[in-house]
Structure formats: structure tokens, C-alpha cells
């Protein structure tokens, strides 16, 4: 139990937010790539108190088969919140909210991926919210996009996402939990940083058209900054791997590749014997 009280104000007389941020300032963000060993790709994000882990499996065989797409891989996103991630215990079964978010996250990520490279396969993205403190769908996209890159799924670019919103009449970037709950509106969005096109856009609350356009421009600017953080996180993970193993790293990878080939051949031989 963590009882919640409504704060007296969301923007202080000095123009600062509840946690001392400026209106266009993101929360402290920590991105890590390759946090899970079992997954083909993984990443974690801490954005303020929000903590999310994303894992990617695949491309691999798709079950159930009837979901198969003949001209591309199926991108399956499963966004789930831990029961203890919110003030009250969340029911363990997937809620309608979680299903909708899974879908919009998949739609946000898809334009960046070359799914047509893997017809009939599935790319599974599992997003686990460990602690929720606002902006989880956007944080999920930030992490999932890195996990996809870590898994080596061919992609045009990473996808950064941020929630813009409104509180006490001011537009704010990267809403925290209180700002989301007690503020006047929320506009989560994600962009393709290469073209500035928008791949996720939702809104609630009350906005005039001009406000929305300004909010989206703020969102695009923040997404560009997030995109730099994502690239840096990816670089950190891979530069470290290369320097730890030195040249041997390359050899290891070749060995893996050979192993794969052998397995394939082995299976083919069996088939012929039958």
C-alpha cells in the first residue's frame, strides 16, 4: 500500500514541476542494452521511477500457425504490468488496457522494421513493466526498440517515444505519474527520427488544435534527444563487448555461424533418410 494524495499544484509559482523539472525537461533516463541472457535481444529503461524490461525472441517459428503472414514476419508485442508495479495490486490477468497498449506499441515499432525479410516467422517482443510511474507505453517503446536492435532485427532506425501533456495550463514533456493523473491531458507519441513522421499518437484531456500542434512539436524535439540516448546506449553495449573480447570476438561469432550451418545440414540429412 502506498497511499496517494493529490498535490496542491503541479507547476510551482517559479514555473517548476513537482519533481523540480522545467516544462521541457525529461526525467533522468537510464537505458541498458543486453540485460537478459536468454533473450535474443533485450533492453531495460529507467525513466524517473518507471522501470521496464523488454526482451525480443526471434525471428522464430510462429505458433499458432493461423496468424502466419506470407509476405513478412508477424510482430507480436506483449505489454504486461507486474501486479506490484502500481499502488493497488493489479490483477494478474492481462487487462484490456494492456492489450490495447500492446497493439499501439506494435504499430509504433513496425514502420522501422524490415519484417519482409522473414516471411511466415514471428518476432516476439515481451515488455514487462516492473514499476509504473507514468509514461510506461512510451518507455516501453524506447526499450523495445533497443531490444529489437540488440536482437539484430534489420531496422531503418530506432524509435524514440515520449508523452507530452498539460498541467496547470502549461505544456509539459515526459509526464510523471501525478502529472498524468491530476493533469489536464496526455499525448503519448513516437516518431521515426529519420523523417519526423509520427508512428504513435494518442490523446486524452482537453486541447485546442494550436496547443496540440505545439505539444507534438515539443514531443518531436524530445524524441530526437531520446534517440541520441538510445544510440549511445547501443554503442555502449557493443563497444564494450568488442573491447572485452578483443579479436577473439569475431572468431566466436564465426564458430556460432558454423554450428548453425551444421545443425541445418544435420536435419536435412535426417529428412532424406526418412
Amino acid at each position: 500500500m502506498s497511499p496517494e494524495t493529490k498535490p496542491d499544484f503541479l507547476i510551482s509559482p517559479e514555473g517548476l514541476r513537482i519533481d523540480g523539472r522545467r516544462t521541457d525537461e525529461l526525467r533522468p533516463i537510464e537505458l541498458k542494452v543486453g540485460v537478459l541472457k536468454q533473450a535474443d535481444g533485450s533492453a531495460s529503461i529507467r525513466q524517473g521511477k518507471t522501470y521496464i524490461i523488454a526482451a525480443v525472441y526471434g525471428p522464430r517459428e510462429l505458433h499458432p500457425r493461423h496468424l502466419t503472414l506470407n509476405d513478412r514476419a508477424y510482430l507480436r508485442v506483449e505489454y504486461r504490468m507486474a501486479t506490484f508495479s502500481v499502488p493497488d495490486r493489479k490483477r494478474p490477468a492481462p487487462s484490456r488496457r494492456e492489450k490495447e497498449i500492446s497493439m499501439v506499441v506494435a504499430n509504433a515499432l513496425k514502420p522501422a522494421l524490415f519484417l519482409e525479410e522473414f516471411p511466415k516467422a514471428v518476432v516476439d517482443v515481451f515488455v514487462q513493466v516492473i514499476q509504473a510511474d507514468g509514461g510506461t507505453r512510451c518507455a516501453a517503446i524506447n526499450a523495445a526498440s533497443l531490444a529489437l536492435a540488440d536482437a539484430g532485427i534489420p531496422m531503418r532506425c530506432l524509435i524514440p517515444a515520449v508523452a507530452v501533456g498539460k498541467a496547470d495550463g502549461k505544456l509539459l514533456v515526459d509526464l510523471g505519474d501525478e502529472e498524468d493523473k491530476y493533469g489536464q491531458g496526455d499525448v503519448p507519441m513516437a516518431i521515426l527520427p529519420t523523417t519526423d513522421e509520427i508512428t504513435l499518437l494518442q490523446q486524452d484531456g482537453m486541447f485546442k488544435k494550436e496547443e496540440l500542434l505545439e505539444a507534438m512539436q515539443m514531443g518531436i524535439n524530445s524524441c530526437k534527444y531520446l534517440h541520441e540516448l538510445q544510440k549511445e546506449a547501443l554503442r555502449r553495449a557493443y563497444v564494450k563487448k568488442a573491447s572485452e573480447n578483443g579479436d577473439e570476438d569475431d572468431d566466436d561469432e564465426d564458430d556460432d555461424f558454423d554450428d548453425d550451418m551444421e545443425t541445418d545440414l544435420g536435419e536435412a540429412d535426417l529428412m532424406e533418410d526418412e
Partner: peptide, 13 residues
């Protein structure tokens, strides 16, 4: 006033 928005029905940006 815009009170809600949703982009969906496909992933086109």
C-alpha cells in the same frame, strides 16, 4: 476542443 485522439488501424506513419 480535442478531447481524445487515437492513431490506429495499421502502422503507417
Amino acid at each position: 476542443n480535442f478531447t481524445a485522439m487515437q492513431k490506429g488501424g495499421g502502422s503507417g506513419p
